[in-house]
Amino acid sequence: MDFKVGIIAMPGAALSNKTGSFANEVPVFMHKTCTGCNLCIYFCPEGVVYGDKKTKIYDFDSDYCKGCGICAEECPVDDIKMVLVEK
């Protein structure tokens, strides 16, 4: 008898849910004025921004980004802009 049904889920199984479909807008990381402050990583509610301080090259995972725009709003040097998703 498989009593897990509806009760127990496997760790991290939510990764199968590509929430990128939520997004109307997505960020573009322009890599012009970036200082490598990492705020875009800190503030991303989904944890989809990656990159690093040294190279100052950041990007995001479009499979999961919901397009909230917090990264662009909070970027202290306006190096991220939001663009409409072509659907």
């Binding site: 509806g6 009760i7 127990i8 889920a9 496997m10 760790p11």
Partner: peptide, 9 residues
């Protein structure tokens, strides 16, 4: 073995 218990069904 980190399962999640008491999920929403």
């Amino acid at each position: 073995n980190p399962y999640s218990f008491g999920t929403i069904a």
